[in-house]
């Protein structure tokens, strides 16, 4: 028996919205500790890793670990039927998990809707992501990162990210010319969500596809801050942290000429 009730249903709507462009089918791995998902895009350039802790649900029940194979487009269509204020409950009888039940209850509980999503068999290779202590770890407002990606997209498909002790610089070069955005660390004590911090092991400079980075910024509504972790010749980690868990995106670098 599997049951997970999330009072903040909007969170689940946003989470699915932030992965739907990247991944079409994925396995939700459910265990007594919570729900996780790991999936790559078709071109194996980007990977999303989602983790929601059992404590964030009330109640949460998962008698034994199992996987829910889901077509994310279909799940998204059903999630569109949930109101932003609804409480969302996921249920599956783990034995013959051939469908996932979704319950949407509105706050005054006089409107309850129930949907059944047919599950699929998805054999997806799992990647082992090595624990890395990164050359550079940058924290910044998530809206700022979203804007930088959107702005520099007008110049080029690629962005070079340079991190030094007291600056992170995003540079784009294209047909029309060039553009760059430089951010300096700030420690606005009164508004921590607006702060920019740089933890530097050593300077690092890497190039990435802005198409993918812009896609990752669909996670912006999930958190005020975004964490960027970079190491030479390693995939970029973009993390949006929530009370209930996190969503992490990994992006393989582009190798300059």
């Amino acid at each position: 028996m599997f049951e997970a009730r999330l009072t903040q249903g909007a969170l689940l709507k946003r989470l699915l919205d932030s992965v739907k462009e990247l991944v079409t089918d994925a396995n939700f791995d459910c265990s007594e500790t919570g729900i996780s998902l790991q999936a790559m895009d078709n071109s194996h350039v980007a990977l999303v890793s989602l983790s929601l802790r059992a404590e964030g649900f009330n109640p949460y029940r998962c008698d034994r670990g199992f996987s829910l194979g889901v077509n994310l487009n279909s799940l998204n269509k059903i999630m569109k039927c949930a109101g932003n204020e609804d409480v969302i409950t996921l249920k599956a009888d783990d034995s013959s998990a051939d469908s996932l039940c979704l319950l949407f209850e509105n706050s005054s509980n006089e409107r309850v809707s129930e949907y059944e999503l047919k599950l699929m068999d998805i054999d997806q290779e799992h990647l082992s992501i090595p624990e890395t202590d990164y050359d550079a770890t940058v924290m910044m407002p998530s809206a700022e990162f979203q804007r930088i990606c959107r702005d520099l997209m007008v110049v080029s498909e690629s962005v070079t990210i340079d991190v030094s002790k007291d600056e992170i610089k995003f540079t784009a070069e294209g047909e029309l010319g060039t553009g760059n955005v430089k951010l300096k660390p700030t420690s606005t004590i009164d508004k921590p969500e607006e702060s920019i911090t740089i933890e530097l092991g050593q300077t690092v400079s890497l190039q990435f596809s802005l198409k993918y980075l812009s896609n990752f910024t669909r996670g912006t509504p999930l958190s005020d801050q975004v964490m960027l972790c970079l190491s030479d010749n390693m995939p970029l980690l973009v993390e949006y942290k929530m009370d209930i868990g996190y969503i992490r995106y990994y992006l393989a670098p582009k190798v300059g000429d």
Binding site: M40, S43, H44, V45, A46, L47, E125, H126, L127, S128, I129, P130, E157, S158, Q207, S209, M234, P235, Y250, A252, P253, K254, V255, G256, D257
Partner: peptide, 14 residues
């Protein structure tokens, strides 16, 4: 244009 690497160059399959 520069060449896009694959994650499989960096992360091993389990």
């Amino acid at each position: 244009d520069s060449s896009q690497k694959s994650l499989l160059n960096f992360f091993g399959k389990i």
